[in-house]
Design a protein around this nucleic acid. Structure first.
Lengths: 206, 206
DNA sequence: TCCAGATGTATCGAAGCGATACATCATCGC
DNA sequence: GCGATGATGTATCGCTTCGATACATCTGGA
């Protein structure tokens, strides 16, 4: 099973954890979650659903239940609504709780982050710190290769590199804010168990 | 020919435009150019080189010339050094000058940008403005979907979206700076033809 | 001297993408 | 009403690309 398909597995299980969904809707939410970039096609989603079905992690709802709101007896092709099985919930918990390199690489980090609400504070901290470390390693590498090769780059390539570097630095600062915020709410944890860390005023009325 | 392979074609031709290179070195520079993300494998590069060879856009240098500095007569597997043909140079110019959507999508923009030094100011402006427009469309889309679905997102997903939005906004500002700078140097063009636009004080002492 | 790691070309199986097929439903101009 | 257009919906096929690996040589240090 490839790296990519693990992300898809985690994302699908996570979305179905909130509510049963059919393929089309699943893809829309998946693409919102993964970003416009890295969107996935039906040629990926349907085989993935098949494999999850085969593994017993998800189950198709009875079509009759799903069609209740459309009282048509005609040969309308039924939507196939999927929900998590007990095994699926277990699998999701084990995936979302894993906090190794697999959780903080480029392709995986944001999906893990999106499901932070279902993890414990210790896991969140490990993933955030791992991610920050990963980005700092990259900064070091780029900066070194820049000093080595700066003279043969024209100013456009240089500007591109500068902008890229700045983006990564910005992301590191973002992670640091999140880590601090996570640590702070960790300490006040007993006093205020419902508080959620992060920028937005937590339980805002909006 | 897919979208991806067009990028590879442009990038390979562009790199060989500067100097003849062999596969291994080509891949290293390609990955520096494309970013650590989106790196390409040998399973992609070598078939691409094959197809460029078949199309007459590149040519393998005489192995004897390439091996001159290693005076070994043994069965050492020779490096295969590629250089551009006249057709290849022409093809590169036509690719790098094209300024349609194909030049400002996510996957293509930075490669086009990296070779801006080989384009004229009008092309650069069109691509930069197209890219900015593209990102602004995306901002609109995301903002709309945010107001539609904000209530069912937890604060982590929300924070992720906020950060993503901010990144795109930042990129729009960057593009605006570049466009302004490009326009300015366009106007002073006759007076100072060697001036290059962009943030870094051009020939700065380092 | 010997081993580990960089350099170098090349291919194979598996996975994912983009396009497409096919079908129903909602909406709007006419 | 009536056809057109586009959203909703499931599904597959061919081609590209990836990740892993094979194989071979060179370099530097224990």
């Amino acid at each position: 099973m490839s790296r990519r398909s693990e992300i898809i597995e985690l994302a699908v299980l996570g979305l179905l954890h909130e509510a049963p969904l059919h393929g089309y809707e699943l893809r829309k939410r998946l693409n919102a979650l993964l970003g416009t970039f890295r969107a996935l096609s039906y040629g990926t989603l349907y085989p993935a659903l098949k494999s999850l079905l085969a593994g017993g992690l998800i189950r198709a709802l009875d079509p009759d239940d799903a069609a209740e709101s459309l009282g048509r007896g005609t040969g309308r092709r039924a939507r196939i609504v999927y929900e998590l099985t007990a095994d699926g919930k277990e699998r999701f918990q084990s995936l979302v709780t894993q906090s190794g390199p697999a959780a903080w690489e480029d392709e995986t980090f944001d999906v893990h982050f999106a499901f932070f609400a279902r993890t414990d504070a210790a896991t969140r901290l490990r993933i955030l710190e791992g991610r920050r470390m990963r980005l700092q390693e990259r900064l070091d590498g780029v900066r070194q290769s820049m000093t080595r090769t700066r003279e043969r780059l024209d100013s456009y390539t240089l500007e591109l590199q500068r902008h890229g570097l700045e983006s990564v630095e910005r992301e590191v600062r973002w992670l640091t804010e999140l880590i601090d915020s996570e640590r702070a709410s960790n300490m006040t944890h007993l006093r205020n168990p419902d508080a959620l860390p992060g920028r937005p005023d937590p339980p805002g009325p909006g």
